[in-house]
Nucleic acid binder design. Structure first.
Lengths: 197, 197
DNA sequence: CTAAATAAGTGCAACGACTACACTTTCATA
DNA sequence: TATGAAAGTGTAGTCGTTGCACTTATTTAG
């Protein structure tokens, strides 16, 4: 049996989905700040209390699936092809994500969604915090990959810079060029202190 | 006459100062989240409405003077000694700020203040936002210094990375070493694409 | 010097996000 | 089938924040 999920979990997942759907629809229609948490709950036919049992806050309604981003990031470093440096691997990983992004960009609904996020300060900041939350894990993965101590500063710096590079890539028209220029700064210095990685 | 300041402006500045003092004292004593905005207003003998006429929000009560940080940052790039690269200039600027910091660290009151900021998520995030707000100005200054177009990606990247480096420097025991390692990543790549700057 | 304009400060009522609480309903399971 | 866990509800409340109509003090102009 693929999923031994009882009716209970199914209904739970369903209300969660209803809430996420309601939030997205209303936010896209009226704008994030013009929609109250009560509106979302009503639209999903659920109480406000229930809404907060499922989502930690109003912003979280929009970012339904954020898991295994961290795992993918760590894997990009750990399982990079031989001969590829860590900065290169991270650049490729970001670009891959970016193009997966661009595929969906045809969907006007998806485009409207990213516009919503970028133009709403609360959502922009929240997304950034969620993303940079992976810094410690990435830094650890990098340190492990080069055999450096866990709290090595240059590994932490590379992790932070690489994560911050994402924002630069996202907002410029030609992602490939932006990524190349941003990571060019990192690759040389990294190669100098960690030859062969 | 040095300051033709009328009684009005004087009293205004005074209540503002009372509020900042009250906030700092109460936050240090009880912790940020355990003190309401009403408590601060009462302690300063002022109405809550007045408090919000002086400060844009609860977090702003703690960061009273944030001006000319940006000017100093831009000046560090623009007026760097000849022969010094831009990343070097930024590293030195951050280290200078850091040691000015360390001077005050003897004062236990000041140490408690920075502990408060670092341990309170709301304040930590606010400080970070205030700091990174200068990214665009710094990027522009860098671009101007090397004669690149205003929206040059590598200039924007250097600006962002340099600002982000601050957090790495602040939290590690030996700031000098941390700064050197973090900026080592940037200097080589920068020198490769912008020789002589 | 007085009167009108301006700006600081006040108190109250309200809004929106969020939480605590006591409660009912629904499902899983021993 | 009974028992307990977990999902959901409604109410009332806290806290940060804003709008509004108002008083009071200071500046400026006539």
């Amino acid at each position: 049996m693929t999923e031994p999920t009882g009716r209970r979990e199914r209904k739970k997942a369903q209300t969660r989905q209803s809430l996420a759907d309601a939030a997205l629809e209303l936010f896209l229609e009226r704008g994030y700040d013009q929609v109250g948490v009560k509106d979302v709950a009503d639209f999903a036919d659920v109480s406000v209390t229930t809404l907060f049992k499922h989502f930690s806050g109003k912003e979280a309604l929009v970012f339904d699936q954020d898991d295994d981003l961290e795992a993918a990031l760590v894997a990009a470093v750990r399982e990079r092809p031989p001969g590829q440096s860590i900065p290169q691997a991270l650049r490729e990983h970001l670009l891959l994500k970016q193009t997966q992004f661009a595929v969906h960009a045809a969907d006007p609904r998806f485009a409207a969604f990213t516009r919503l996020v970028q133009e709403t300060p609360a959502l922009r900041d929240y997304a950034h915090r969620m993303w940079t939350r992976h810094e410690a894990a990435l830094a650890r993965a990098i340190a492990e990959a080069v055999g450096a101590p866990e709290d090595d500063v240059s590994c932490a710096a590379l992790a932070r810079f690489a994560l911050e590079a994402r924002g630069l890539i996202q907002r410029h028209a030609e992602p490939r060029r932006a990524a190349d220029e941003a990571f060019a700064l990192l690759e040389h210095g990294w190669a100098a202190s960690h030859p062969g990685n």
